[in-house]
Every structure is written in C-alpha cells, then in structure tokens.
C-alpha cells in the first residue's frame, strides 16, 4: 500500500512536470494572451491593460491599476470578506456572558 501511494505521487509529479514543460515562455510578447485579438476575434483585456494603464491613471504599477480601478468592485468584495471574517471572530470567540449551570 505504501509503495502504491508513492507510485501514484511519482506518476502525478511526472505528469505535472510534463505538462509544465509545454507552458508558454514567461514574458514572451508572442504569447496567446498578449495578442490584441483572441482566437475568436474578440479584444483581449490584458492587452488593453498593458497598453492603456498608464494613460488612464498615471500609475506605473499595472497591478495597482487593475486592482484598484478596473477591478475595484472585486477588491471591495475582498475587503468585505475580510471584514466579515473579523466580525465572525468577534461573534464566535468573544463570550461576554458565560453560561453557568
């Protein structure tokens, strides 16, 4: 049983490494996701961000512009998630009235 587990792990490792060898080279401008039009001839969002982020917000950090401007409602949701986690700890962990029998 132990060898079967090890065999499964090694098999998956080999499979993942084989799949990762076929990934596109990072930062290559000829990649599919950096094209202006996709395969179905629709505009690609990442290309717009790279070209227009500085002209839209005068911010050199593209990640900040995407996070704070283009996808700002998503970031608002993340903040509400963190806020909810804090409120849940307040509700669950803080016991003001101890139930004593």
């Amino acid at each position: 049983m132990k060898y079967l587990k090890a065999l499964i792990l090694v098999t998956f490792a080999v499979l993942l490494i084989y799949a990762a060898a076929d990934l596109p080279f990072r930062g290559d401008p000829d990649n599919r996701m950096h094209d202006e039009r996709s395969m179905t001839n629709t505009p690609v969002a990442g290309n717009y961000y790279i070209q227009e982020a500085y002209h839209d917000a005068h911010t050199p950090n593209i990640v900040t512009v995407v996070l704070g401007d283009y996808r700002s409602i998503d970031t608002f949701g993340e903040q509400v998630v963190i806020y909810t986690a804090g409120i849940i700890t307040l509700l669950v962990l803080r016991r003001t009235r101890r139930r004593s029998s």
């Binding site: 917000a57 911010t59 900040t64 804090g86």
Partner: peptide, 26 residues
C-alpha cells in the same frame, strides 16, 4: 487622469486601515 490616481490612493488607505484593524481584532 489624476482623479483616478487619487481615487486609487484613497481606497488603498481604506483597505490598509480595515486590514490592520481586523487583524488586531482577531
């Protein structure tokens, strides 16, 4: 354009304040 710059700065301050307060609260 500079309004977008300022808006991003304001929301980053809000996020920082909320995250700091919530981690201390936990």
């Amino acid at each position: 354009v500079w309004l977008r710059y300022t808006g991003i700065l304001i929301i980053e301050v809000g996020i920082g304040l909320a995250v700091m307060a919530i981690l201390v609260m936990i």
